[in-house]
Design a binder for these strands. Sequence first.
DNA 1: CTTCAACTTTAGAATCATTATAAAATATTC
DNA 2: GAATATTTTATAATGATTCTAAAGTTGAAG
Lengths: 139, 139
Amino acid sequence: MKELENFVKKLRNSGIRPTKQRLKICEVLFSSDKTFHFTVNDLAKIIEEELREKISLATVYNTVHAFKKKGYLKEISIPGDKSYFDTNTNHHHHFFDSNAKELIDIDFNQIELKNTPKAPRGKSIKGIDVIINVENDSQ
Amino acid sequence: MKELENFVKKLRNSGIRPTKQRLKICEVLFSSDKTFHFTVNDLAKIIEEELREKISLATVYNTVHAFKKKGYLKEISIPGDKSYFDTNTNHHHHFFDSNAKELIDIDFNQIELKNTPKAPRGKSIKGIDVIINVENDSQ
DNA sequence: CTTCAACTTTAGAATCATTATAAAATATTC
DNA sequence: GAATATTTTATAATGATTCTAAAGTTGAAG
């Protein structure tokens, strides 16, 4: 398979050196069509425990941030919880299930925002995040 | 003035004992009509430095969380930044200015959300947060 | 008003996420 | 392949938040 080749290309095109560690992270994050939500710790665990590859937590942080900056990942922050990253970088929104502590994607088209206000003078809009908090029905 | 009385009542009605520290925090947060955004640290500093009252950071945390649980404060979490609290508990939204690291309220009516999706089975919607990220124009 | 149980505050320790550091390893360029 | 720039790494440092357990305060009941 030439998947690895593609990752090498992808990184090189972004001016990121394709190191072993970065390629391993690409493999975990971008091999499948499925998008997913994870914390830095989750990702480090997958690599260390499932793939049994040694990787420094600092490297995982560095890489995740580099990928975020290049637009390969989105960060979602939850009040009273930690930061999650999302491999789905299309414009879309989220449910946050506060019982399961879990994000669920909502397609961009499923919510229509009308009359979004103008940015304050001298500023411009960079992105809009909608988080719908949900919890278990109380019976 | 009977402001203090009112705070005592407010707390008692919520089943929160009106202690000196909690009343002091009420005074800082709810005396003015103006709403504002702050971190736990900001609040502790105001009390210690401006009011020159000694208060433990742990108490500020406890109180802020108690007030949040009772609905007197809202928490807003920013990707790659920390948690902010908001004395405006009306349903409303925010700009986040990533240069100034500052939240700006957006009136609820200024954004119309159409077709908000149903919560997943067995869950119900508890709240919706819209954060519009803005940054300085690049010239 | 005194007493007592329940609750709260406090300082400091503990934890957790994240960032900084600087030496060793690796990648790129020539 | 040697020189330079970048990256990885383990570890320390930081910062936010929570925990702990002892000391202090509050409210209810007599």
